[in-house]
Design a protein around this nucleic acid. Structure first.
Length: 351
DNA sequence: AAGTCGTGGTG
DNA sequence: TCACCAAGACT
C-alpha cells in the first residue's frame, strides 16, 4: 500500500508524465485514455517482450513490422516458426522469439485469444516473468501492480540514497517501489518512472536540474545520485575463436543450418561451423579445398568475445550433410540471420 | 542461484 | 577502443 508521504511523489511524477510522455507506437497517451481509448493487450504484451533488455530505439521498427504482418495474437499464433524467427533476427535474446510464439499459441488455444488480466495469470505465460506480468497488468488492465526494472531500481536507489549494491539490494528497492505505487493510474505511473529513468534519471550524468522528483531526492541532496545504484563487479569476458563455412551449390543455393532451440542463437539460421572455443577444431561440412577469405568477424556476446574466420568453397553436387539444408537462392534473405551470421555473410559478399 | 542468453548505442 | 548499459526470463 502506498505510504502517504509518497503520494506527493507519484502525483508529481504523473503531472510530469502528462506533459512529457513520449509518443510510442504501443502507448496510449494519457489524454487519449482519458477520452476512453483502451490499450490493446496484444500490443502491450508484444512491446514489453521486445523491450526486455532492449532500448526503445531498437524496438520501434521491429514492433511495426510484427504488428503489420501479424495484427492480432491469433495471426501470430498461426505464423510459421521460421517466419517469426526471421522477423526477430537482429533483435537478440532469441529465446524471447521462441517463447513469443509459444505464448501466442497458448493464449489463442487455451484462452480463446484473450490475455489473462491478472498478474498471476500473466505469470503463467511463457516468456512473461515478474516484471512483464506487472507491466501488462498495470498498463493494459489498470491493476495496481509494481513494476521493477532497471529504471525503477535506479530511480529508487537514488531517491532513497540506497548504497547497498545490486542485485542484493533488489528486495529493498522493490519494497520502496511498492510504497510509491498508486491505486489510480498505475499503468501511467509505471511508464512514468521508466520514462524518467530513460530520459532524465539516466545511468550517467542524470539531469537532476529538470527532474520532477529533485526536491525530495535523497541522492541528489547527498550528492551521490550519479554513482547509484552500486553494482557488484562483473567477470571479464574471455575471447573465443571459431570457423564458419559459407558454401553455395551450382544453383546458387546456400548450405545452412537451423540451430537447435536450446542455447546460443537457438532456433536461428546460421552457417555451419566449428565449435567456438579457445582452440576450435576445424569442422568443414564437406571435403573441399576451403578458401580462407582473409578477414574475420569480431562479435561480442553477453559473456564472451568471438573471432570467427570465414572459409568458402563451391559445393559439389551432393546431398546436404546431416543437420544441414540448402536455402534456395530466392529464399535467402540476409535479414533473416542473427547479427553474427549476418556479419560473416557481409564479409563473404565483399571478399 | 549464479550462469546463460544479443545487440547497438554511448562515454 | 572498450566496458558499460537497456522496459528480464529461464534454468
Amino acid at each position: 500500500m502506498q505510504k502517504n508521504e509518497h503520494k506527493v511523489v507519484s502525483t508529481a511524477l504523473l503531472a510530469w508524465y502528462d506533459v512529457h510522455a513520449r509518443e510510442l507506437p504501443w502507448r496510449v497517451s494519457p489524454s487519449d485514455r482519458q477520452a476512453g481509448v483502451v490499450p490493446d493487450p496484444y500490443r502491450v504484451w508484444l512491446s514489453e517482450i521486445m523491450l526486455q533488455q532492449t532500448t526503445v530505439a531498437a524496438v520501434k521498427d521491429y514492433f511495426h513490422r510484427f504488428t503489420s504482418r501479424w495484427p492480432t495474437v491469433q495471426d501470430l499464433a498461426a505464423a510459421r516458426d521460421e517466419d517469426v524467427m526471421g522477423e526477430w533476427a537482429g533483435l537478440g535474446y532469441y529465446a524471447r522469439a521462441r517463447n513469443l510464439l509459444k505464448c501466442a499459441r497458448q493464449v489463442t488455444q487455451a484462452h480463446g485469444g484473450i490475455f489473462p488480466d491478472t498478474h498471476d495469470g500473466l505469470l503463467t505465460l511463457p516468456g512473461v516473468g515478474p516484471y512483464t506480468a506487472a507491466a501488462i497488468a498495470s498498463i493494459a488492465f489498470d491493476r495496481s501492480e509494481t513494476v521493477l526494472d532497471g529504471n525503477v531500481e535506479r530511480v529508487m536507489a537514488r531517491f532513497h540514497d540506497i548504497h547497498d549494491p545490486l542485485p542484493g539490494s533488489k528486495p529493498r528497492l522493490r519494497d520502496l517501489a511498492e510504497e510509491h505505487t498508486p491505486l489510480a493510474r498505475p499503468g501511467d505511473h509505471a511508464q512514468a518512472v521508466m520514462d524518467l529513468g530513460a530520459t532524465v534519471c539516466t545511468p550517467k550524468s542524470p539531469a537532476c536540474g529538470i527532474c520532477p522528483l529533485m526536491p525530495d531526492c535523497q541522492g541528489r541532496l547527498a550528492g551521490t545520485a550519479a554513482e547509484l545504484p552500486k553494482k557488484t563487479p562483473k567477470k571479464p569476458k574471455p575471447t573465443r575463436y571459431g570457423y564458419a563455412y559459407v558454401a553455395r551449390d551450382a544453383g546458387g543455393g546456400w548450405l545452412m543450418e537451423r540451430r537447435p532451440d536450446k542455447g546460443l542463437l537457438g532456433g536461428m539460421l546460421g552457417w555451419p561451423g566449428s565449435d567456438w572455443s579457445e582452440k576450435p577444431s576445424p569442422n568443414p561440412p564437406f571435403e573441399a579445398d576451403w578458401h580462407d577469405i582473409g578477414a574475420e568477424v569480431r562479435h561480442t556476446f553477453t559473456h564472451f568475445h568471438l573471432h570467427l574466420r570465414v572459409l568458402t568453397a563451391p559445393m559439389p553436387d551432393i546431398a546436404a550433410p546431416a543437420g544441414l539444408h540448402i536455402v534456395a537462392k530466392h529464399d535467402f534473405r540476409p535479414s533473416d540471420l542473427p547479427t553474427v551470421m549476418r556479419k560473416a555473410y557481409d564479409l563473404w559478399r565483399d571478399h
